[in-house]
Design a protein around this nucleic acid. Structure first.
Lengths: 219, 219
DNA sequence: TTGATACAATTGTCGATCAATCTGACAACT
DNA sequence: AGTTGTCAGATTGATCGACAATTGTATCAA
């Protein structure tokens, strides 16, 4: 553990962006909410210029939208956007799973199994939020094991937008399905079978897409 | 063609970022070049704050790197970075080719063929720069035909870093190979064969990767 | 060689200021 | 009724000047 990661050296710009990002992905700021630079500056105790850079940052991440001279607002997503997030996420996760399987090592297997076991344990209960966090942690572990910085970065963009959408939509799911659906993926990676791992990762996400479709048919 | 796209309403921040981006991807600014906020502000006739936002933008695109309190510089790439760009680009282009094949229409076929023919024609000569531009245009057309905004956006990030690297490395290639290697990809998309199109797109890029490896073996 | 110090360069951050543009409300006109 | 003009308020676009924080470098002493 590096000391440099403990000591707070992050610029205020980044910290402001972090706080806002968290509020959006948590669902505290719902899509459509207006964000006023001066108001945020006063609220965070920072200058307008600092807030401005943070908002531009979030804008490039797709979390907030800017209308020139009119203002910023939390991005809202239409059906096309949701489709884009699902398909892109599937492709990126598939790639990560293939790479991770190709360079898996003992330590990697441990990390993966640990994360997976935690998820399985939580799936016995019904704390949906905790399950979601564990689910995300598992996926992030796979991305991490791929050892691909840019892939991780692009995945984070998709994931954050995805989170903002999920949090706002307030959807529910069956805890039992979540745990099982990851079994094949985890074992494929641990076995070093890249092709199968990629296939399972994609199946994992598009499976949820189908589930999503069924649910929306009712409305 | 929307009139709103003709009238110049772009903010100075964006325009400054565009200019810098172009200089970097063109190779006018080589990796490692230091960028000083005050100097740029004076050079562009803009205030420091405006330049600052442009630099932050380019930073999130991976084109420039920031060392706190020390300065900005044009990003340099090591072997790992190059590998990341190749693999990520292959995956994204593969996805785009698959999607494009799945929704190909007559107009799309026309656009694709036109772009491809232009590339073929240029490959008879030896204007390497023109060939590169035509090559990029063909790839961008495929990305466009996928109808996936986020995919296009993420691809652009990879492409720009790629361009900066290529421009700095000043590599050469055989004009004849470039034209032929795209034939299978184009026909696969026009035939609506998504699986094949994805495969060919990936093969297209990783083929260049192998070529790259051979070249680096000499050094 | 090492360490301490001083100094210059550069970014980090702030605050104030004015211009440009969007928004909404309301009046005027057809 | 529906369109157009006008006005005031809100918000961003952009500039400037100032100072603090940090890094990098050169210098000198032990």
């Amino acid at each position: 553990m590096k000391k440099s990661e403990i000591i707070n050296k992050r610029s205020l710009e980044d910290q402001a962006a972090d706080l806002l990002r968290q509020d959006i992905t948590n669902g505290d700021l719902t899509p459509g909410t207006r964000l006023i630079e001066t108001a945020l500056a006063k609220e965070y105790g920072l200058s307008r210029g600092t807030i401005r850079i943070a908002l531009h940052q979030l804008g490039s991440e797709g979390l907030v939208t800017q209308v020139p001279y009119a203002g910023w607002s939390v991005s809202s997503l239409d059906d096309q956007d949701i489709w884009e997030l699902y398909t892109l996420r599937a492709t990126l996760e598939g790639m990560a799973a293939r790479l991770a399987a190709g360079k898996i090592c003992d330590q990697g297997i441990s990390r993966l199994q640990l994360s997976f076991q935690r998820l399985l344990a939580l799936c016995q209960g019904d704390d949906l939020q905790a399950i979601t966090r564990a689910d995300l942690d598992l996926h992030r572990t796979i991305i991490d094991l791929s050892g691909h910085k840019r892939l991780a970065q692009q995945y984070r963009l998709v994931e954050n937008q995805f989170l903002a959408y999920i949090a706002a939509a307030n959807r529910t799911f069956d805890p039992h399905l979540v745990g099982k659906s990851h079994q094949a993926l985890v074992t494929a990676i641990c076995n070093g079978d890249g092709e199968l791992a990629e296939e399972e990762a994609v199946k994992n996400i598009t499976g949820f897409e189908q589930l999503q479709e069924e649910l929306t048919l009712h409305s």
